[in-house]
Design a protein around this nucleic acid. Sequence first.
DNA 1: CGGCCTTTTGAATGTCTTCAAAGTGCGTGG
DNA 2: CCACGCACTTTGAAGACATTCAAAAGGCCG
Lengths: 248, 248
Amino acid sequence: MRKPQPGVPSSASAGMVARRFAPLVKLSPADLALLDGTASRLVHYPSRTELLREGEDLRPLLLVEGWACRQRVFPDGRRQVMSFYLPGDLIGSVLDRRAQRSPSSLFTLTPVIAADASALRKALVDDQETHAGLAQACRLSETFDEMCLLNHVVRLGRQTAYERMAHLLLEICDRLDQVGLVSNRSFTMPMTQEILADALGLSIVHVNRTLQQLRRDGLIELKGPAVVLKDDAALADIADYRPLRTLI
Amino acid sequence: MRKPQPGVPSSASAGMVARRFAPLVKLSPADLALLDGTASRLVHYPSRTELLREGEDLRPLLLVEGWACRQRVFPDGRRQVMSFYLPGDLIGSVLDRRAQRSPSSLFTLTPVIAADASALRKALVDDQETHAGLAQACRLSETFDEMCLLNHVVRLGRQTAYERMAHLLLEICDRLDQVGLVSNRSFTMPMTQEILADALGLSIVHVNRTLQQLRRDGLIELKGPAVVLKDDAALADIADYRPLRTLI
DNA sequence: CGGCCTTTTGAATGTCTTCAAAGTGCGTGG
DNA sequence: CCACGCACTTTGAAGACATTCAAAAGGCCG
């Protein structure tokens, strides 16, 4: 059990989504009301538990607080983390009514507060005219998700451990920044080095050594789950990182 | 220049899509007519050329014949192939009217014949009731795409060269089978070992050795671009491969 | 304080890469 | 028709990056 992370304010829940997309698309009062309604039905999940098993039907969720990840586990125990879910993220498509069988399991990294987004999905599918703005925002969200998945492929396929780590740190900072969880290039990353290893396709030992190297090189600072990117220009150069904003 | 691959019949173009999805969703006569109309405007592209640069606007295409891939290139020349496009595949979303800036470049592996799917997209977005079945099929197609991307992450993150190769071969066979391009577990894979290396995150040399090992183990057979999976059960076991069909 | 999970460190091993060069196949042009 | 060039495949050997094994140190909670 881990206590709720410091630095993750339990903000006016769905304000997250509004915050993410307000600068990008125009959300109508109806959109904002819909988001508020969605955020009224909150569910709590404990840390380190499976939200959803592989193959189960994926009901859409809006992640309000805490972190989760999508993972696949091999019969022999190897694990691959395929993506991270951060506050403000949508889990499962809200633009498609069809039941979706998840090809991977969902796993919480911290205690999680999420909203059932079934009603949101229903509203977006049924009243497309009313919620054009919000639908647009959700499409944008899915585009970001895909971009992150592509980034992940690049990291795993063609980058060294050092580059992978720099790249992932930049991406997470980028995403957290969109929901106001970064100040002074500093943020909370509530996961063990084991999770990091399973995301980056490395061994725990090597993750540890890589982090130390980044620290020694003066590029990052670590205090428990707190990360500071001390030279994000250098990191971006090392990792050939392209900000998510460049998509729009 | 490479001649059109044997084994890839220049079939009644958009029949591909119908063929892929007919067993899965009900396509109406209107849907089939729409597909036929789409396939009437065909464009040819030469082999080994860039269909689309990174950052350019992505207009939707229906790939009718030939192979292409999505790739990202580093400043220092390293390359990562993120996904393959096979006959019958949709490139770019046809369910979303918004202009999409591509986060990766598109590259043809063979001479390619593609249909401009802009009209298809327009029809699907505007006449949702008329084309409910086809829209469903396209959503399914996008779900497959995501599944393949997740597969790719797993391969690159947590599998050995041997496992990666087996896994990719099975996935490609699986996909080609959906459009009738496989007979007797045998198909044409028109790409160099260099492309394979850039997809699997390996060196060319190691790809070569891995293929030889698979051959020596009696799991596959290679004659030029022709591949035979001689023991797909063993391959699936080695790679922990899960057929795409299990999604539905 | 004790137990457990996580982080850190050292040393040996291994998978895969790099470098180098030879071999093969195919299209072009003399 | 043969020779040449070019791209791709294949082979060998050395070296690098990352893993595995093992164990100690640190931090948190009951």
